[in-house]
Design a protein around this nucleic acid. Structure first.
Length: 498
RNA sequence: GCCCCUGUAGUUCAAUGGAUAGAACAGGAGACUUCUAAGCUCUUAAUAGAGGUUCGAUUCCUCUCGGGGGCACCA
């Protein structure tokens, strides 16, 4: 609110400087002095001091304004109201393990979905599961052992032929024995994934399957011979580099299936935006896919956005389900759970570790550090929330809706906390616009940090001044609420006790 | 070989062309008759190298060196 106002008044971008410089700042160059004189003459009620330092103008909020803001509702800016946004994420493949890479995609996608919702959008959560294709044939060939199938495929020509034959049979369902193995394995996988989704707190509105969207993609490719051309028995697209869309067996590859998927998404939901969250290993491939999509369905391509995230890497190198060198999500969660004695704390710690850094960058997964419970961790945030709640509980007061006098909450640490609370809607908006959950994570950490310092310094319940105590409890209540909302946007639970 | 991403304290991460480059972990020091010590206070320590653009560069451009990923019938 005040930020926008300053922006209008100065015509410059309003930033948050270091606290000693002020509460807000604008860089205006050599005009700083002249402009500041003009602003001072206007006397802005929210601002009690304007200072020029070099080419900056620094603004200090008035205490009265800050205190008053404690009673605002800190509502999100619904700038995406009436928009429909599809968020696709997690995307595990049947017959393969749900590993920490899927966990990463899930944590990021879920947070993005929640941020969009907070900004007013109607969000459709979808996941895209590859239930047909060579990876499935490899697993079926090896009785469910994908790694073994992948190895044989690469090393043994005979196995390769058999696997290709199985792939074809899975598509046309011509072999009763294969059908049985396939159907049972698929069903078991989907049940397993469902448990993972539940454990991680994601509820999908729609499950897309390659077996269903593949034929639609195939039809699309065949309907556009001007885009997709035959080459060495396959059908390819010559984009930035050449990709195969239909293989020489006449079956759609992932590229063609993806065309079918995206067509279907728009047919079903008519979204204003369709976001696809995946690992960045397929970034370049997606580039080419988008090129083809622009030619075949320009309206869909225009509204589709690929959001690649970094990989969870082991210190030893890339994690690969092809070689069986994977850590499953369950394995990791159990390990942390054992340490923290709580499912919510364990999943929260893992999600926070993923979300606190920029989504494009890899995370080096160090067994010890990734399950840390000290410092800038999910545990710290949950601990802070639980402590705040504990203070409120012990106060014996349940209704904090009373007006307070301005003679309280005017200590520097109290004003600083409220100033940070004021930033909440801005942080949410920025995190949403930039598709950057780490901005939200940082906001929560800073709030928790302020809160921890506050209750270390101030013994709230021992206060002999009853009115001041009540005012401080209102502050504690509000900080707890915002912290919980912030954690919610990260998909992290806020238990009242940990 | 070609293409893309990346290089910030000992380590893992922040910083969208602006002020003295922020945190956490690890290391060092400390407070406490404690509303949850999973906490708090103080402290040591960094922009890979060389050019360029700019009033101003961790950020943009070029080259060198390091790390990762991708390069047609996997996803």
């Amino acid at each position: 609110m005040i930020k926008e106002k300053l922006q209008q008044l100065t015509g410059a971008e309003v930033t948050k400087p270091k606290p000693e410089f002020g509460d807000y700042a604008v860089f205006v160059g050599k005009e700083a002095q002249a402009l500041s004189e003009k602003l001072k003459a206007q006397s802005i009620p929210e601002i009690e001091k304007i200072e020029v330092k070099g080419q900056y103008i620094n603004f200090f909020l008035s205490s009265a304004y800050v205190q008053q803001q404690l009673y605002s509702d800190f509502a999100f800016d619904p700038y995406l109201k009436d928009k429909t946004i599809i968020v696709e994420y997690t995307d595990p493949n049947p017959f393969k393990l749900f590993h920490i890479g899927h966990l990463m995609s899930n944590a990021i996608g879920e947070s993005i979905a929640r941020l969009y919702e907070a900004s007013g959008a109607k969000v459709i959560r979808v996941t895209w599961q590859g239930d047909v294709g060579m990876h499935i044939a490899k697993a079926v060939w090896a009785d469910g052992d994908y790694a073994a199938g992948a190895k044989a495929f690469d090393e043994d020509p005979k196995a390769k032929q058999e696997i290709e034959a199985i792939n074809k049979k899975i598509y046309d369902r011509s072999d009763l024995e294969i059908n049985k193995r396939y159907d049972e394995g698929r069903k078991a996988s989907l049940e397993y994934f469902e448990k993972e989704y539940e454990r991680l707190g994601s509820k999908f509105d729609r499950y897309f399957f390659e077996s269903e969207e593949g034929p639609k993609g195939l039809a699309l490719v065949k309907a556009h011979p001007e885009v997709f051309v035959p080459s060495e028995g396959a059908i390819v697209f010559h984009g930035e580099h050449t990709r195969v869309f239909v293989n020489s067996q006449g079956l759609p590859t992932y590229e063609a299936k993806e065309l079918g998927l995206n067509q279907e998404k728009f047919k079903l939901y008519h979204p204003d935006l369709s976001v696809i969250v995946t690992g960045n290993e397929i970034k370049e491939y997606f580039h080419v896919l988008m090129e083809a999509m622009k030619l075949v369905m320009p309206d869909v391509a225009e509204k589709t956005r690929h959001v690649p995230h970094g990989m969870l890497r082991l210190p030893t190198g890339k994690m690969s389900s092809r070689t069986g060198d994977v850590i499953t999500a369950d394995e990791l969660i159990e390990e942390v759970r054992e340490k923290t004695k709580s499912e919510e704390v364990a999943t929260g710690a893992i999600k926070y570790a993923i979300l606190k850094q920029g989504i494009g960058n890899d995370i080096i997964f160090d067994r010890e550090k990734s399950i840390a419970v000290h410092g800038d961790t999910g545990v710290y945030l949950q601990y802070t929330y639980a402590r705040l709640i504990s203070i409120l509980t012990k106060s014996g007061i349940s209704n904090f809706q009373f007006p307070i006098s301005n003679e309280f909450l005017n200590e520097k640490n109290e004003l600083n906390i409220i100033k940070h609370l004021i930033e909440f809607p801005d942080a949410v908006r920025e995190a949403t616009e930039r598709i950057a959950p780490n901005i939200m994570a940082l906001y929560c950490y800073e709030l928790a940090n302020l809160a921890n310092r506050y209750y270390e310094e101030v013994r709230i319940l021992d206060d002999i001044n009853e009115d001041r105590k009540q005012a401080r409890l209102v502050l504690v209540r509000t900080v707890a609420d915002i912290l919980k909302r912030g954690l919610g946007l990260l998909g992290i639970a806020a238990p009242e006790r940990i």
